[in-house]
Simulated assay, not measured.
Amino acid sequence: MLVDDAVALVPSIPGRRVLLGVAGAPAAGKSTLARKLVAGVLERLGPDTAAYVPMDGFHLSNAQLDRLGLRGRKGAPETFDVDGYVQLLRRLRTDRERPVYAPDFDRRLDEPVAAGLVVPPAARLILTEGNYLADDGPGWAEVRDLLDDLWYVDAPLALREHRLLRRHVRGGRTESEARAFIAASERPNASRVERTRAHCTRILVPTPDDTWTDAP
């Protein structure tokens, strides 16, 4: 059971903290897995022992994307504040005396939300997830160096694109607009992410009953 493996990563030494990353293409199910792992660790080890900090909180705002002419590429590596993300991961490693506030991402607003999440000082396991955690691009390679372990969710293309279409339509796009955005942005991003699969220590595939298993 994956929760058992997450619990096994939790340091037994007081004051130590572990960062577990979950990478994968857009709509692979990274956030669902990360949240379930956090819930499972909290149930086993008690309140405040684990926390969830997604990379998506470091999306550039839509105003900044418009300024940079990148709105149509939202979700690409250059549309994130990777330096801010790296600094947060470093702080999570070292600052165990005070709560650490982190940005979240609101899909209804399609915008990051400052200080939407908090990591309590007692947290010993941090789950972070995002597309580019295993990437070698400028800034992103530093992310991998800050993680103690890195898993990859390898969901089938048809499942991912079905989820993306539903996500973008719910977000306000028409079906044709959603399909165009998937073709122009989501697919190229997914191709880049898929090339980083080999950098991850564990490959997980979704099952029909909404769980995950190790890839054969």
Rank of each mutant, 00 (worst) to 15 (best):
L89S: 02
R90D: 08
R90S: 03
R91C: 04
R93C: 04
R93Q: 14
R93K: 13
T94N: 02
T94G: 02
D95A: 09
D95G: 00
R96N: 13
R96V: 08
R96M: 04
E97I: 01
E97K: 03
E97P: 00
R98L: 12
P99E: 15
Y101G: 03
Y101M: 05
Y101V: 11
A102Q: 08
F105E: 12
R108T: 15
D110H: 14
D110L: 05
D110K: 05
E111A: 09
E111L: 07
A114P: 09
G116V: 13
V118F: 00
V118Q: 11
V118N: 01
V119E: 09
P120V: 11
P120W: 15
P121F: 09
A122R: 11
A123D: 07
R124T: 12
L125G: 04
I126G: 03
L127H: 01
T128W: 00
T128N: 10
E129A: 01
E129T: 03
G130M: 05
N131C: 06
N131G: 03
N131P: 13
N131R: 05
Y132D: 11
L133A: 10
L133S: 10
A134C: 02
D135K: 00
D136E: 15
D136K: 01
G137V: 09
G137K: 11
G137H: 05
G137L: 15
G137A: 15
P138V: 08
G139W: 04
W140N: 08
A141K: 08
E142P: 03
E142L: 08
E142D: 14
V143G: 07
D145C: 00
D145A: 13
L146C: 04
L146D: 11
D148K: 02
L150H: 02
L150V: 02
W151E: 14
A155Q: 04
A155R: 00
P156L: 13
L157W: 12
L157V: 15
A158E: 15
L159V: 11
R160F: 01
E161P: 00
E161K: 00
H162W: 00
R163K: 09
L164A: 06
L165H: 07
L165D: 03
R167I: 01
R167S: 10
H168Y: 13
R170M: 05
R170T: 09
G171I: 12
G172K: 12
G172L: 09
G172T: 06
